[in-house]
Design a protein around this nucleic acid. Structure first.
Lengths: 208, 208, 208, 208
DNA sequence: TATGAATGAGCTTTCATTCAT
DNA sequence: TATGAATGAAAGCTCATTCAT
């Protein structure tokens, strides 16, 4: 059996184990057994538990980003910004629902174990946030050549949107009968009007 | 030194250690040393690592809920719904910024280690979500006697709002110079218009 | 409460705990709690776990020897040897049945933990064996001025008799409906004819 | 070194350590060191202290039963009952003298630590008692077609005989110069006449 | 390429014992 | 006389990692 295939099998087992038990509770014994190979082979290919976990984070992060990009790519250019955002969100919810263990690795496990894992997953998150920032920013500039909101506002909004999406992903996975489309619709309902207002320069302010 | 005081010292040390390293990586040795006591004393008072962690989750969860309630209580009744939400969010961001380790325990660590911890923190989250649901629901019913959106919509929105808030808490903590008020304002800008639209029965829909 | 009484309470608790759990598994915490006093008081009175256990062995050993002696004393002198043995055995079985924890301490626990405990209980056993040896020996010499069996034979027989009695004590305690008298009768049936033969100089021999 | 060999080495060390110190006082560290391996290897092969102790009880119990059976087998059929009993007793005393630690595990240690150990050793004892019961019972029925003593009598006698043998095993081990044959002869002298009487329907009775 | 055999280091937990009051 | 507070030391067990083959 070729090395590349074996490696993927090991990482499948690792993602499942890490996703369900967490980094510390997952044991290399368990991963090796689930992968159907001996432990020394895991070390031969992946070097250490730390490197194995890092590889998992990278693979799952890249897959998620790719899924979102592909979802948007399908409608890009000829469609308005809200449709692009909708496409991205739908792809996001569909992917996380289909890969719950991978999503757990990214969202839950990798962020709770300090460096270098948190940094690794932060890169993935930054990619997604930048992607959303671009989408929102482009739409905003397009609609209002002299926007009143700056980069930090946009970043904060993208952060909030991504955060809301991440949270909804957990909610959708745990609530039976909530589909990716429904989750995406909930988020669009929640977000789009607010984003529209902001792009139009209207803000909510604590002063009455 | 009286038992009650020592117990709080131990829990302070435990929250800090669990919050920074995670449940598994935190060792009772480390916690005891940080608390300035011997390990057997920690066991004498808190019984086990599991019970200690549970006690931390409960204490930090109760403190967060109390902070939010107190923040809203200050403006309750004489103020409209958006002001109440604003007050709650500000209190939330202020509290999480002041207690980053406690927030890490609740948001990151407790949710990644299965039962009984996940259930414990879920109760805290449910309290907050219910609180927000009430606020949104009351505002919605007030504005529109016959609302077109049902309970599940409201729950989904509250989920998204709480999720966005949780995510922004991380962002605010990690980004220097972002205050609790600023984070709350970002979220209000993001959320309020959307909620207003929804309460008015206007929805975003994928169909053009 | 006078010291002597407290001390007996502690030893009662200790005998019960040691008897049921064994020396190592019994904890001073448990004993103190069962005795209704604080742990330091146990140490103040009994000094250490080792001394406490030794004191238990001595007390229970002395009580058993006294019970057997008293049983025989009641019939001594005016009765033949078999009646005396019967009285002693009955007293032995009655006492062990009434004090199962004390018996467990002597028979099971003290003998399995090396010096100085084994030596302590060996003294009690030696007293009983010597007592039985006297009884058998006197009867034998009385019946046959020139016995063909020497001291070592008598010691071996006493050993076997005491061993059989100890073993039957366990059996009688664990088998519902077996009384002290029944156990004693079983042993007399088993032993007396053999002893009689030996006193008469008749032996069983492997040679045909 | 192959696993099966290492396992026996570990069990040898365990029997020695358990036999001399008792279950609780024996530490896995000590056993591992005596076996010349690291502690994790002991756990890898034997799983836990409890399972290791159970394995020791089983191995030593099986060896003892086999020794007695083999001893009797050598004379079976062509010999009368007393010769068979004699052969069994001799084998028993020889085996316990040659394996004092194993005998200590069975007779002392395993019986003082509750379930599941007591049950485990009870099975071995039941095998031996059943064996002796058969021997006595067969001899009795052969001699007296209508015996006056029932099953419980026979069981009690077998119990007393086995108990006496067990006790003598300790005595023989601790008394220099007492051979297996001598111990067996003492017990036969003690027991055979009594058994003969009982088989003949003659009993000792407390009434004069 | 692949593995059976093996371990150093570290973890949670318990317990006999003491001190200050 | 009596105890609440506290700990040094050690035990059972697990795990990431390596080596000889």
């Amino acid at each position: 059996m070729p090395r590349a295939v074996r490696e993927q099998q090991m990482m499948d087992a690792a993602v499942q184990t890490f996703g369900r038990l967490g980094y510390r509770a997952a044991s290399m014994d368990e991963i090796a057994e689930l992968a159907g190979v001996s432990k020394p082979l895991v070390y031969l290919y992946l070097n250490s538990k730390e490197e194995l976990f890092t590889a998992c984070i990278r693979r799952e992060g890249a897959a998620l980003v790719a899924a979102v990009r592909d979802g948007v790519e399908d409608v890009r250019a000829e469609e308005p910004a809200d449709r692009q955002l909708w496409a991205g969100l739908t792809a996001f919810f569909a992917h996380t629902a289909e890969h719950p263990d991978g999503w757990s690795v990214l969202h839950h496990q990798a962020r709770t174990h300090g460096e270098p894992f948190a940094g690794e997953v932060a890169r993935t998150r930054a990619e997604l946030t930048a992607f959303v920032t671009d989408l929102i920013g482009a739409a905003g500039r397009e609609a209002h050549p002299t926007p009143e909101f700056g980069d930090r506002d946009v970043t904060g909004l993208a952060q909030a949107l991504v955060g809301a999406a991440e949270s909804l992903a957990g909610w959708a996975n745990e609530t039976p009968g909530v589909s990716a489309k429904e989750a995406a619709a909930t988020l669009m309902n929640f977000a789009w009007a607010g984003l529209g207002n902001l792009m139009a320069g209207k803000r909510w302010s604590p002063a009455r």
